[in-house]
Simulated scan of single mutants.
Amino acid sequence: MTELILRKQGVAGRITLNRPEALNALTPGMCKGIRDALALWRDDPEVHCLVIDGAGPRAFCAGGDIAEVYAHGTRGDASFAQNFWRDEYHLNLALAEFPKPVVALMHGFTLGGGVGIGGHAHKRVVCETSQIGLPECTIGLVTDVGGTLLLARAPGRLGDFLALTAWRMGPFEAISAGFADRYVPQDLWEPMLTRLCESGNLCVIDAFAKPFTRPELLDAVEALSPALAQDSLAELRTALSEAPGELAAKALRLIDKNDPLAMAASRRLIAEARQHDSLREALAGEFRYTARAIGQSDFLEGIRARVIDKDGAPNWSHRIEEVETVAASLLDPLGEMELWVQSPQ
Rank of each mutant, 00 (worst) to 15 (best):
residue 142 V to A: 08
residue 164 L to H: 10
residue 278 S to H: 08
residue 160 D to Q: 09
residue 50 L to G: 06
residue 239 A to K: 08
residue 71 A to W: 14
residue 295 G to P: 07
residue 190 E to C: 11
residue 266 S to R: 02
residue 321 E to T: 15
residue 95 L to M: 04
residue 8 K to P: 00
residue 7 R to S: 15
residue 173 E to P: 01
residue 328 A to D: 10
residue 234 A to Q: 11
residue 257 K to F: 10
residue 229 A to E: 15
residue 217 L to H: 10
residue 131 Q to G: 06
residue 198 E to I: 05
residue 291 A to S: 14
residue 324 E to Q: 13
residue 300 L to T: 08
residue 182 R to H: 13
residue 320 I to K: 01
residue 282 A to N: 01
residue 36 D to I: 06
residue 104 A to Q: 07
residue 138 T to E: 13
residue 264 A to W: 04
residue 204 V to I: 15
residue 343 S to Y: 06
residue 333 P to F: 04
residue 73 G to R: 06
residue 145 V to E: 12
residue 316 W to E: 07
residue 70 Y to A: 10
residue 187 D to Q: 15
residue 277 D to A: 10
residue 65 D to W: 07
residue 205 I to V: 15
residue 15 I to P: 01
residue 35 R to A: 12
residue 143 T to N: 13
residue 266 S to D: 05
residue 117 I to A: 11
residue 169 M to I: 06
residue 83 N to V: 00
residue 168 R to W: 02
residue 4 L to H: 03
residue 56 G to D: 05
residue 154 A to V: 04
residue 130 S to K: 00
residue 226 P to K: 14
residue 213 T to A: 15
residue 94 A to R: 09
residue 19 R to C: 04
residue 84 F to D: 03
residue 222 E to I: 01
residue 132 I to T: 07
residue 343 S to I: 00
residue 44 D to H: 12
residue 116 G to E: 02
residue 220 A to Q: 15
residue 194 T to D: 12
residue 138 T to W: 08
residue 316 W to K: 07
residue 51 V to Y: 04
residue 244 P to M: 11
residue 187 D to S: 15
residue 35 R to F: 06
residue 52 I to D: 01
residue 195 R to E: 15
residue 118 G to Q: 02
residue 46 E to H: 15
residue 135 P to N: 09
residue 67 A to L: 14
residue 182 R to E: 14
residue 99 P to G: 08
residue 337 M to T: 03
residue 85 W to C: 11
